[in-house]
Write a protein that binds this DNA or RNA. Structure first.
Lengths: 336, 336
DNA sequence: CTGTTAGCGCCTTCAG
DNA sequence: CTGAAGGCGCTAACAG
């Protein structure tokens, strides 16, 4: 029942622990016969070296860490991309979610990094980190950091342009009272999306009603309340641009509850294009980020750094694109 | 740059390492003043105890491991379910993918378990493991094991009934030449689905043409070749029931390439209902497994075991249900 | 070629 | 109340 350790193997094979270690690691300097016997015992006992003990000692694990706040649609899409990019490289993946508590929030990336690096992982991918002024004894790449590119090598997507495209789409459908549901004010991605929204509105000569700009928190549940606020306004918006898909789904939840027909009574646009977006009823019009590609690109960068490439502070920005589906349509309402 | 260790803290605070350890773990027997000072230094230096070192010593980490072969749609749905179930429990999540190589295949669960348990994790969830006769020093729960319920506590879904429902659906649409694309012959889930297929066919008095039963490998790419084989038959099937969604998507890929219209020329049914299923063009008719619920249920069982509950060899089986979407329709072809 | 020694970072007795 | 010593499982020198 208890794990079989290197000691068990050594005892059973009648050699020292060090010799077993050498065999396991293909170190040179072990007689063929001994090696053979040890290998056999290893097979019989089903021994596998402990990742923990090994990493504590050797600081080289061939494992890369993906640090996330929580496993939700965005981070799991990143995981899929990383998983494909890593195949065949000999590296293994360790995805770590420290907490998942909503409150624990800020600082999870520093904590996780601190707990895992220097031991256990050879490098880390930080998925949508809030803080990026981290120092770690291993290479780190940030994916879609909430604070925007900074000291860390980064992969993100063109949030500004995507938001402009989404807003222009709504404007072209005749919408003028357009609500914006941001993420959180301290998040760069949210700020960029709001900026794109305002730019497009300004370019069209439409004023932004401050009442129509709310904070949605980037989660399905947290978007419910602000969505209700928007839709119960005396002069409610005819369209809502939510800063990510999950909060857009929250808007749909509220709209359905209020008996609004989508898109007849209300158009909704999201951001991300997670798989859940197309499963929505109706399917969500959204700004597509190539999430899996972002994960794959970040992985390449990280492997490069681990392999000794110079950190040239790369900021890779992938393009976004508007995907029109069923949740947007022309305004049915006359009005300013 | 290098990790700050407990030693650094001890030196900076002018106390011994042991004292710092006590403060960190709220052990009793440290003067209030000392404790205060140490805490301050910890904050300043941003110290976090190494998960690795700690677990090596104390064998209690408050981390549960989710061991997967690879991060694909099914396992990531499980992750989402686990993530929600774990929130608020104080446990953290560590998802580990050892390899991801197609070839490495068999035995990954034993290897991963052996590498991580006894150290690092307090318990493990094995996602679609191929072997379940594992022994580990920590509690283990299997989710949708490929070999069917066995010694391990298990959560799976009603594969047989789901497959019957899918097949009956095709039969009711008038299909008689129905192809079956299995997973792998050694996988229980695949066998059960094939069994359901055959039962429903027999009940309807329709004979199964052996040429129409192929192995699809459960992956999008591996399904391509057998799908081509099926569709290039002299008398090709009018419908294909694929044993999971990914291989059903592979079938759609091939069908599109061959210029077949779905569902007019060919109906396709999948199994799982991963988010990607509804994103397909047309949306995939499939058998829904409550994947996230399965993850959540397995998590509860595991936490129970970790908490000292007796292993009563529970086999929890959740219901499946047919979800009809756009990829199935009545036969356009006359025939047997 | 093989075993012994030391120590990775931490926690836990056990003296002082 | 605090520090020194030992050891978790493993690897990296160094002796033998």
């Amino acid at each position: 029942m208890a794990r079989v350790t290197i000691h068990d193997v050594a005892r059973a094979a009648g050699v020292s622990v060090a010799t077993v270690s050498k065999v396991v690691n293909d170190r040179y300097g072990v007689a063929a016969g001994t090696s053979e016997r040890v290998r056999q015992v290893i097979d019989e006992l089903g021994y596998e070296s402990s990742l923990v003990a090994r990493s504590l000692r050797s600081h080289q694990t061939h494992v890369i860490g993906i640090l996330v706040a929580e496993f939700e649609p965005f981070s799991t899409e990143i995981l899929k991309g990383v998983s494909q990019a890593i195949a065949g490289t000999g590296y293994e993946l360790l995805a770590y979610s420290g907490g998942g508590q909503v409150g624990t929030g800020v600082g999870w990336e520093r904590r996780s990094l601190s707990r895992l690096s220097g031991t256990l992982i050879d490098g880390a991918l930080l998925v949508t980190p809030t803080v990026v002024d981290v120092t770690a004894p291993v290479p780190v790449v940030a994916v879609d950091p909430h604070t925007g590119p900074s000291g860390l090598p980064t992969v993100d997507s063109d949030n500004l342009r995507g938001a402009v495209a989404a807003t222009e789409h709504l404007l072209s459908l005749g919408h003028r009272r357009i609500g914006f549901l941001g993420g959180r004010e301290d998040l760069e991605s949210s700020r960029r999306r709001e900026e794109g929204f305002r730019q497009a509105m300004a370019a069209a000569g439409v004023e932004v009603d401050p009442d129509l700009v709310q904070v949605g928190g980037y989660r399905r549940e947290t978007a419910v309340e602000p969505a209700e606020r928007l839709l119960s306004l005396a002069d409610p918006p005819t369209a809502i641009f939510a800063a990510n898909d999950l909060s857009a789904l929250g808007v749909l939840d509220v709209a359905h509850r209020l008996g609004l027909r989508i898109p007849h009574d209300l158009s909704v646009v999201g951001f991300d294009d997670v798989p859940e977006a197309v499963a929505a009823e109706p399917a969500l019009t959204t700004v597509r980020q190539p999430i899996q590609d972002m994960g794959a690109a970040a992985t390449s960068m990280l492997l490069g750094l681990i392999g000794g490439a110079a950190d040239d502070h790369t900021h890779l920005r992938l393009p976004t694109s508007l995907v029109v589906r069923g949740s947007t349509g022309p305004t049915s309402r006359q009005g300013a």
